[in-house]
């Protein structure tokens, strides 16, 4: 790990000194175990960059804070960050030529107690699928056959049991919209929840309104979710949001063929296209 960190700092220094990037987005030291994002502009600051098992946050979304950059942005990408950037490029929010992706193969991150994070346990792409530079050696992919296990368990419940389960989940939601704010697929200029004039969503905080929000949020990102698990990680009340996202991903795959968002920049999201031979259930 520390050797990679050294390599990263070296590379960052080189990029900054040569002027190939204007600044680099990476992880830095926080007050606790947590590694907050850091923006390095000067070559002499590269030692502030950290690469260890606590570099948890997805960095992709920080690109949206500088959509019209003066010069290239260097950004450290693990598999999930790389997919986030690909999605943002596909959504035309970030120009591919504006970013330099510094790939970092990742073996998973841990929490305070050293336990592997849930989002990393279910990871499908530990190596960045798209990058400009890659550091270190590629790591072995886990393949992850159990990714949909929890979804399958929930599918087995009866209608009422399912509803009860989700009611209990959404009862706790405080509608802070942290899940939306952190999500690299949520890049609308004005989210539907904020459009009070159209009134997609009521302002009240009750279970039903929370549910409408939760369902709509998941459906909106159905074919764009890169499974980085950030929504679930940042949820202050610990809602199992990936169980919703994964259900949609599972169905998209079984209905319209294999698809993983943000892996191949040339593959379009399946809800933006159709095939004549799509499943027919509505005769």
């Amino acid at each position: 790990m520390s050797q990679m960190q050294e390599e990263l700092r070296q590379k960052a220094k080189e990029l900054l000194e040569k002027g190939e990037v204007r600044y680099i987005i990476g992880w830095g030291k926080g007050r606790f175990h947590h590694r907050p994002p850091i923006f390095i502009y000067q070559a002499e600051d590269v030692d502030k960059l950290v690469w260890d098992e606590y570099c948890v946050a997805n960095l992709g979304k920080y690109l949206l804070d500088d959509k019209f950059p003066e010069g290239k942005i260097g950004i450290c990408v693990r598999g999930c960050d790389s997919r986030a950037v690909v999605r943002l490029v596909q959504d035309k929010q970030v120009k591919r030529e504006d970013v330099c992706l510094i790939g970092l193969p990742c073996t998973g991150k841990v929490d305070q107690e050293g336990r592997e994070l849930v989002k990393c346990r279910d990871c499908m792409h530990r190596n960045p699928p798209v990058y400009d530079i890659v550091l270190g050696e590629p790591v072995e992919e886990k393949g992850n056959p159990d990714r949909f296990k929890r979804v399958e368990e929930l599918e087995k419940l009866s209608s009422d049991e399912k509803y009860e389960y989700w009611s209990n989940v959404f009862d706790k939601c405080i509608r802070c919209y942290a899940c939306r704010n952190v999500c690299p697929a949520c890049n609308c200029r004005e989210c539907f929840v904020d459009q009070y004039r159209v009134g997609w969503q009521g302002k009240q905080k009750n279970c039903m309104q929370n549910q409408i929000f939760g369902l709509t949020r998941a459906y909106h990102i159905a074919d764009r979710c890169i499974e980085c698990g950030e929504c679930e990680r940042v949820c202050p009340v610990g809602l199992p949001l990936m169980e919703l996202n994964r259900k949609l991903i599972k169905d998209l795959n079984s209905l319209f063929g294999p698809y993983e968002a943000g892996v191949n920049p040339d593959v379009k999201p399946p809800l933006g296209e159709y095939r004549l031979e799509d499943p027919e259930e509505y005769m």
Binding site: D91, K92, Q93, N187, C188, R189, E190, P269, G272
Partner: peptide, 9 residues
């Protein structure tokens, strides 16, 4: 145009 983010979907 104020709401449109230009994603082209």
């Amino acid at each position: 145009p104020q709401k449109c983010a230009g994603c082209g979907f």
